[in-house]
Amino acid sequence: MEVDKGKGEAEETRKVAEADRDTVTLKSSDGKLFEVSKEAAARLSTVLAGMIAGGSIDDNGTDLKQIGSEALENVVDYCNKHANSIPSAALISSSISFNTAPFKEPEEWERKFVDRLSHDALFDLVEAANFLGMERLLDVTCHKISEMMKGKSPDQIREVFNIKNDYTKEELEEIRQELAWAFYDD
């Protein structure tokens, strides 16, 4: 939820945040303020959990200089939706060890949450989730990206993600020969 619409409103928000200790205020790289449930933030983001535990949360808005307002809005939105929809125990245990925890399929609402995003917004969100150490959101966004790659040839993947083929002609020929057995178009 976006809070900041002007200086007066920001001041108002600060007072509210101070009074209500259940939320923390986050500030995007472009200076917009967002309010998120403290419990959800601590549960879903290892970085925010560390900041809350370490007392480095700023009531005037904790600076997250690496995250733009659009991505931060999605992060906050996700946290708030999450707080309302999923029991926490399983997720807390799954976020402890990324290497051994089995990947859990996204829930229906999580699929819808990422399906509505543009490619650019998805990219910004996955980077934000990575920065904030949000394991579950990383699972959900990476799952969405993997779905966009499934059953596609290298050319089709380049098209979907608008990636330029930066191999030289020689390198490309080398790869083509190495992987000739692996592709339909040979």
Binding site: K152, S153, N165, L179
Partner: peptide, 8 residues
């Protein structure tokens, strides 16, 4: 393998 050969 497809993803690996998209770009450098």
């Amino acid at each position: 393998l497809s993803v690996a050969s998209v770009c450098m």
